[in-house]
């Protein structure tokens, strides 16, 4: 496979994101390469000409005020937006070196997993929740499933808390545990990417801390894209941060850079709280 070159991107000069020029560090290969992406809900344009690269096995955070398009972009990565009638997408997204839209959506979503804002455990047992994705694939044998469920629950740091009640309803555990269950459920199918849509906004600080710890563990094996309202959270967990405003990507940079010395005035305004 040929190495990637940013010049392959159309309007690549707009991608304000590069290796730190003072070091020799090689950029990780891009998990997603987004070029000239527009997105419409009916006639409302939610994303305007987005260009960006999501690096592999790093945590990228999208920040910005509500309605700025960050969640829409996230949901484009696993094509969840297609399930909403009346939506339209223009431009290109590549997963690795392949067109994202060339795969069957159901297969794509096994490679690009997602966790939603509100914990949404299925009204089934804890075990069945985690096994759900595995059972969709007939090539995974019954015996493997129990192992993989345990493995996923351990990765989601939930195993010790639920190992005695695997066959009880998933609705019986706390909100923070439910969200970690949803992460375990997504991890069970061993996705390459995990998309998180404000995963902590409905949780208390202790549960939030647990999930943030978890993200550090997962990022060794997974690319993580997280949408968050909470700038401190972005600063804590992310390697790269993209700032969105009114459907446009204003700035994309290393987390340290964006919070300490942003290039754009709007970014400065937002992170210093002048947007409210």
């Amino acid at each position: 496979m040929k190495p990637f070159d940013l010049s392959q991107l159309s309007r690549a000069h707009e991608v304000r994101f590069a290796a730190d020029e003072s070091t020799d560090e090689k950029l990780p290969w891009p998990q997603f390469t987004v070029a000239a992406l527009n997105f419409f809900y009916g006639t409302h344009q939610a994303l305007k000409g987005i260009n960006l690269i999501v690096p592999n096995k790093r945590v990228m955070a999208f920040i910005g005020p509500s309605g700025c398009g960050k969640t829409t972009l996230l949901r484009t990565f696993n094509r969840m937006n297609e399930t909403i009638p009346g939506t339209r997408v223009e431009g290109s997204i590549r997963l690795g070196d392949k067109d994202l839209f060339s795969f069957p959506a159901t297969r794509l979503r096994r490679v690009v997993g997602m966790v939603f804002q509100k914990p949404s455990p299925f009204p089934k047992s804890i075990f069945d929740n985690v096994a759900y994705g595995l059972r969709l694939d007939p090539s995974i044998r019954r015996r493997e499933i129990a192992d993989k469920v345990e493995q996923s629950l351990r990765r989601a740091a939930l195993w010790d808390e639920v190992k005695d009640k695997l066959h009880q309803s998933a609705n019986g555990i706390s909100g923070g545990q439910q969200q970690r269950l949803c992460i375990a459920r997504a991890l069970a199918v061993e996705p390459e990417v995990l998309l998180l849509d404000e995963p902590c906004s409905a949780l208390d600080p202790i549960s939030t801390a647990k999930i943030e710890d978890l993200l550090f563990e997962i990022k060794n094996s997974c690319t993580i894209v997280i949408v968050t309202h909470n700038m401190l959270q972005a600063a804590r967990v992310a390697d790269y941060v993209g700032f969105f405003l009114n459907g446009e990507l204003i700035e994309l940079n290393r987390a340290k850079q964006i919070f300490q010395n942003p290039e754009m005035q709007q970014t400065q305004d937002y992170i210093t709280g002048r947007f409210g």
Binding site: K2, P3, F4, S7, K26, L27, P28, P30, N56
Partner: peptide
């Protein structure tokens, strides 16, 4: 910057 080389998967 536009010529930064990226690693392969």
């Amino acid at each position: 910057m536009s010529n930064a080389v990226l690693a392969t998967p």
